Amino acid sequence: MAKSNFDLPDIDTCIERLKLVSKQTSASAVMRWLGLPESTYSNWKRRGSINYDRVIEGLLRQNVSLDWLFAPNVDLLYPGVSLTVTENEGVAYSTPSVADTLKALEFVEPIMERFQVPMTEQNRQFMAETFFKRRGDAMLLETALQQVALALATAQTDSK
């Protein structure tokens, strides 16, 4: 296996983070939650290393994003494209579907109305972009502040 240039969490940090997301109180319970034998933790502890492949597989089985474990407090790039992998065609990239865009607009337009934001194409696009930058029901503070700064800069430019 190739060495990573990134600092991965050590075993104690990894288990503590996994306890938070799994709502488990012991390492053996975390292992069960990941779908691993309870003895896995003691094996990792004895070796002084973690098989991150197994952690990733378990998190994905639980439908949990990997970001918070491997890159907490990092504003990662989420390209404005969807990635589709198929057995026959390989990898294909596409922009958000019309259905996804309509869903985003259904969510953001009432907010725009409530705050009396003009329903211009630029404003709708900006709000939809913000909607797509979220992670689940959250957004990193840095990303949110960047979006607010962009909105303020745009508003001040438009008002001149």
Score class of each variant (00 low, 15 high):
Ala29Asn: 10
Pro118Glu: 11
Ala104Phe: 00
Glu129Leu: 09
Ser26Ala: 13
Val117Phe: 05
Thr95Tyr: 13
Leu83Gln: 11
Leu141Lys: 06
Thr13Cys: 07
Leu140Glu: 13
Met139Leu: 15
Ala104Pro: 00
Gly58Asp: 09
Thr101Met: 06
Trp33Tyr: 08
Thr101His: 10
Ala149Pro: 00
Arg47Asp: 13
Ser65Pro: 11
Arg114Ile: 07
Pro96Ile: 02
Gly90Gln: 03
Leu69Arg: 04
Gly48Thr: 09
Leu105Trp: 02
Ala138Asn: 07
Lys19Arg: 15
Gln116Arg: 14
Asn63Met: 14
Ala151Ile: 03
Pro110Ser: 04
Tyr52Gly: 01
Leu18Trp: 01
Ala138Thr: 11
Asn51Glu: 07
Leu34Ala: 09
Ala153Tyr: 09
Thr40Trp: 02
Ser28Trp: 02
Glu16Phe: 05
Thr130Glu: 03
Ala104Asp: 08
Leu8Val: 02
Pro118Gly: 08
Ala138Ile: 04
Asn63Tyr: 14
Thr86Leu: 06
Arg61Tyr: 15
Met31Cys: 13
Asp53Asn: 15
Gly35Lys: 14
Gly58Gln: 06
Thr154Met: 08
Gln147Leu: 13
Tyr93Glu: 15
Tyr41Cys: 03
Leu36Met: 12
Ser22Met: 04
Tyr41Gln: 06
Arg61Gln: 14
Leu77Arg: 08
Leu152Ile: 15
Ile11His: 04
Ala128His: 00
Glu113Phe: 02
Val117Met: 07
Ala128Met: 04
Ile56Glu: 06
Met139Tyr: 05
Asp10Lys: 06
Glu57Met: 11
Asn73Pro: 00
Leu8Ala: 15
Gly58Glu: 03
Ile56Leu: 10
Val85Asn: 04
Val55Ile: 15
Gly48Gln: 07
Leu69Pro: 00
Arg134Val: 01
Leu36Tyr: 12
Gln156Thr: 13
Ser97Tyr: 10
Ile50Val: 12
Asp12Val: 15
Leu8Glu: 12
Asn63Arg: 15
Lys19Ile: 03
